[in-house]
């Protein structure tokens, strides 16, 4: 079957029921999305499908239609996405394991809502867990990224 990840078309020979996360990590060696809970409860595996966040650990690859974006495709070290830049600016990560999922969820939030208040952030990000408890820095980074995006588009 064909899947498009970060703008590149891939042919993969896998069972349609295989979770997208397995295909990304084990078949394509795209290891940004992480395995956390395996049941869409922690958010570490979050990717975008056609710009919408999706938990790749619970998404059968046969059900995916459209463009897949992982943390590797959101931005690069030389050209970071605003959310990635804000994450660096605010030094959000501690252990870092959940952060690819956090960043992907935050980027999707700002796509839908360029000026989220605390309540909107809580709703959008509560299903992304961080055992290091970096939530205050996540909130600050999202607000900073939102401001940067608004200023650039003004």
């Amino acid at each position: 079957m064909q899947i498009n990840v970060n703008g590149t078309q891939h042919e993969v020979d896998v069972d349609e029921e295989m979770p997208l996360l397995w295909v990304l990590r084990d078949e394509l060696n795209i290891t940004g999305p992480k395995f956390g809970c395996g049941i869409a409860m922690c958010g570490a595996c979050t990717v975008h499908i056609n710009g919408q966040p999706a938990r790749s650990c619970s998404m059968p690859v046969g059900q995916v239609s459209g463009l897949i974006t992982t943390i590797e495709g959101l931005g690069t070290p030389d050209a970071m996405h605003e959310v990635q830049a804000a994450w660096v600016e605010h030094q959000v990560a501690q252990c870092g394991y959940c952060q690819p999922g956090q960043i992907m969820s935050a980027a999707a939030l700002l796509q839908m809502n360029p000026n989220p208040d605390d309540e909107a952030i809580d709703h959008a990000m509560s299903a992304n867990l961080c055992r290091c408890g970096t939530y205050p820095r996540i909130r600050a980074a999202i607000k900073a990224a939102a401001q940067n995006i608004r200023e650039k588009s003004a």
């Binding site: 395996g38 049941i39 869409a40 409860m41 919408q52 966040p53 999706a54 619970s58 998404m59 059900q63």
Partner: peptide, 15 residues
């Protein structure tokens, strides 16, 4: 649809 796919997860407590 972030967590709920087009079919039931087979994992215990899966979505």
């Amino acid at each position: 649809s972030t967590c709920h796919a087009h079919s039931n997860s087979d994992e215990p407590h899966g979505p």
